[in-house]
């Protein structure tokens, strides 16, 4: 348990550092950045209590917000996906999730991709809706959401493949 705690704390610090020091400065084609820190929420143990997931997600979102001067938009988007995570887990991994025995890296790639795509898309949509805070920008929000989702999933898959090849 405490081993897990240290692992996740380190992951927290590492992802926040990468996010604020590197990824937020990419600004691909003007304003598209990957939000790799969401990986922290995706990778929280599947059997962790809902309350803890929500609390940790708020913490990482708020940390990013303070660094980025964005009010609470990252925190809001993060707790939102933390809250709906059980639903998405059930949808993407089906019955095996119910038994709560699976580990993230042991699941089939298609299931994993569904899980990542859905949560990232919702996270980004909430994030950009709150950033613009005005639905007259709906098309801008949608465009930014889709492009950033592609970028984020791409970066997550790269990180994923590095970790998996190390495990083998």
């Amino acid at each position: 348990m405490s081993n897990d705690f240290i692992k996740h704390s380190l992951r927290f610090i590492l992802l926040v550092a990468i996010q604020v020091l590197v990824l937020n400065n990419i600004n691909f084609s003007g304003d598209i950045n990957p939000y790799l820190y969401v990986l922290f929420i995706l990778l929280l143990p599947f059997d962790l209590q809902g309350m803890q997931v929500i609390l940790y997600s708020f913490l990482i979102g708020m940390t990013i917000d303070i660094f980025e001067d964005t009010g609470g938009i990252n925190a809001a988007a993060s707790v939102f996906i933390a809250y709906i995570r059980p639903l998405v887990l059930k949808f993407s991994f089906g019955v095996s999730y119910e038994f709560q025995t699976i580990k993230f890296y042991q699941t089939a790639i298609s299931n994993r991709l569904t899980y990542i795509l859905i949560l990232i898309f919702i996270h980004h949509f909430v994030l950009f809706s709150l950033e613009y805070f005005n639905f007259t920008f709906f098309l801008d929000i949608l465009k930014k959401t889709i492009l950033s989702t592609i970028f984020t999933v791409f970066v997550i898959l790269i990180v994923n493949s590095i970790f998996i090849s190390r495990r083998k």
């Binding site: 609390l55 708020f58 009010g71 938009i73 925190a75 809001a76 707790v79 939102f80």
Partner: peptide, 18 residues
């Protein structure tokens, strides 16, 4: 409890945003 915690933190974040 999850929903209550979620709503309170979500509203707090929205408050910071506003």
């Amino acid at each position: 409890k999850n929903t209550i915690l979620f709503l309170s933190l979500f509203l707090l974040a929205i408050y910071f945003t506003i």
